[in-house]
């Protein structure tokens, strides 16, 4: 069985459920995590995020394989969990509109594409 993450990043496997493919899913993960889980993931990505991005930067965004995509999605999840840790100090802040009604239309755009995908072209 092949490794779910690129060589050199297997230490991140315990947090692999943060690697969600869309903003909607990453935000749901952020809101469903406990503060302890959020802090743990935040801490490990603060330690490893720069290495992961430097590694991924060797490849064109549109040519990433599945393990590399997983690692990228973990990095993108840091952008979400950073709000929990650095701003609200809690995973489920009150007085915030739900993302299910704040629809990220761009979630359907292909990775690395600029704007909405046009049919045909």
């Amino acid at each position: 069985m092949s490794s779910p993450l690129p060589d050199g990043f297997s230490d991140l496997e315990p947090w692999i459920d943060w690697a969600q493919p869309t903003e909607l899913a990453r935000n749901h993960k952020r809101w469903s995590a406990s503060m302890a889980q959020s802090q743990a993931f935040y801490d490990v990505m603060q330690a490893r995020g720069a290495d992961a991005l430097a590694y991924l930067n060797q490849f064109p965004l549109t040519a990433l394989d599945a393990p590399q995509r997983t690692l990228l999605n973990m990095c993108l999840a840091l952008a979400e969990v950073a709000v929990t840790v650095e701003m609200y100090g809690e995973p489920q802040p009150k007085y915030v509109f739900p993302i299910d009604r704040f629809v990220p239309v761009h979630d359907s755009w292909p990775l690395g594409a600029t704007g909405p995908m046009m049919g045909g072209a």
């Binding site: 991005l53 952008a79 950073a82």
Partner: peptide, 26 residues
């Protein structure tokens, strides 16, 4: 955006704009 690092920076910037707008919406 052509690489993962740029995408991450954009994602962080975007989320930083989005969450305050979700507070406005509330």
């Amino acid at each position: 955006v052509s690489n993962a690092g740029q995408l991450f920076a954009q994602e962080y910037s975007k989320v930083g704009l989005r969450d305050p707008m979700m507070e406005d919406c509330f």
